[in-house]
Simulated assay, not measured.
Amino acid sequence: MAFIPHPDRRPVLIAGASSGIGAATAEYLADAGYPVALAARRVDKCHEIAEKITANGGEAVAVPLDVTDEQSVVDCVAKAQAALGPIEIAVSGAGDLAIGLSYETSSDEFASQVNIHLVGAHRIYRAVVPDMIERGRGDFVFIGSDVALHPRPWSSAYVAAKSGIDGLVATVQLELEGTGVRASIIRPGQTITGMGMNLDQKSTDAMLNDWIRHGLARHGNFLAPEHLAQGIGAIVAMPRGAHMRVVEIEAEGALTKKGTDA
C-alpha cells in the first residue's frame, strides 16, 4: 500500500515556543512555509514571536499552554486546530530546569520535573496522535536530551524525565508502526537557551565543577537553538516512506589549529 504523501499545508503545534529551541523552531518552520501554532505558558512571548513571523510573511498564531494541566493541553490543541486546521506536526519541547543533588531534592521537586518533561509530553502526544492515526499520517517530535545517554550530576529529576522520554519514544515507535504516523526524538547536547538561566551562581558553579570532574564537559562550546531547529526541520521534511527515528546534535569542539586556507 502506497504512503499518503505529505499535504501541501502541514500545520505545526510547538509546545514550549516562547523561547529557546521552541521559538527558533517556530521561526525556522514558518520560514519554510509551515503554518505554526506557538504554545507556552508565557503566551505574551508567543504573541511577540507570532507577530514577527506574520510580519515576515509567514502564518502563525499564539495559544496558551500549561503541559501540567490536561485541560489546558486539550484546549490548546483545539484552539490551534481552529486557527490553522488539523495538526500535521507536533513538537514537544516545553520544560524548565531545577537542579540540586539527588539526596537534597524533595520528592515534590523531583515529581514536578517529571510531570513537566515526561508526563507533559505524553499529554500532548495523547491529544494529537489519535487524529493523526485516523488520517494515516503525521509527525510527532519529542525533544529529549543527551543526558539520557550521559547523565549529569545535580539534575537527577531532569535526567530521569529525559530518560523516560527515551523509553516512551521507543515504545510508541513500536505501537505506531504501520499507522503512517512517525514519532521521532531529537537529543540536543549543551545548548544556550533560557532554561536554567534563573539558577543561582553558587549551585551552578558546583554543578559545572562536578561535570568537569566526571569528564562530562569536554569543551566550552554550546549549540544555538537554531541548530536544533534545523534538525527538527530535517526530521519533519523527510518524505513519506522514510523515518528519522533518532537524531543527536552536539556542539562541535573548538578548532585546535587553523585551517590551511585561512
Rank of each mutant, 00 (worst) to 15 (best):
K162M: 06
G138D: 10
D139Q: 09
K162Q: 12
I143V: 15
S155G: 14
D146F: 00
W154V: 02
F140Q: 06
R135P: 12
L149P: 00
E134S: 14
D139C: 08
E134L: 12
A148M: 10
S155C: 12
G136R: 03
S156F: 14
M132V: 15
L149R: 13
S145I: 11
R135G: 03
R135F: 00
A157M: 07
M132D: 09
R137K: 08
A148R: 14
A160G: 11
A160F: 07
F140S: 08
F140G: 08
G136K: 02
P151G: 09
A157K: 03
G136T: 13
R152T: 10
V141Y: 05
I133P: 01
G136F: 06
A161F: 00
I133F: 01
R137F: 05
S156K: 06
L149H: 12
F142E: 07
L149E: 13
A160L: 08
D146T: 09
W154E: 02
A157S: 13
V159A: 14
H150Q: 14
V159N: 15
G144C: 11
L149S: 12
M132N: 12
A148Y: 10
S155R: 13
M132L: 13
Y158R: 07
W154G: 03
R137P: 00
K162D: 08
V159Q: 03
S156G: 13
F142D: 04
R137G: 02
K162A: 04
W154R: 05
V141G: 06
S156V: 14
A161P: 07
A148D: 14
G138P: 09
V159L: 06
P153Q: 06
V159T: 14
A161L: 05
A148F: 07
D139G: 03
V147W: 02
M132H: 11
G138E: 09
A157Y: 03
F142P: 02
A148I: 01
S145N: 10
D146L: 12
R135W: 00
R152V: 06
P153N: 08
I143S: 10
S155H: 02
D139R: 02
D139H: 13
V141L: 09
F140T: 04
I133C: 09
R135M: 04
I133G: 01
D146N: 05
P153R: 03
D146V: 07
Y158N: 06
I133T: 04
K162T: 00
V141S: 10
P151Y: 09
P153A: 06
V141H: 10
L149I: 00
P151H: 08
F140C: 07
L149A: 11
E134I: 11
R135Q: 14
R152L: 09
E134G: 07
Y158L: 03
A148V: 01
W154Q: 04
G136L: 02
G144R: 03
R137H: 08
I133W: 01
V159S: 13
H150T: 15
G136Q: 03
L149C: 00
S155F: 00
R137V: 08
A148G: 11
R137A: 03
S145R: 10
H150L: 12
S156Y: 11
P151R: 06
A148S: 15
D139K: 02
A161K: 02
L149M: 09
E134D: 15
I143L: 15
A160P: 13
G144T: 14
A160Y: 10
S155K: 08
P153E: 01
R152W: 00
V159Y: 02
K162S: 05
K162V: 00
K162L: 04
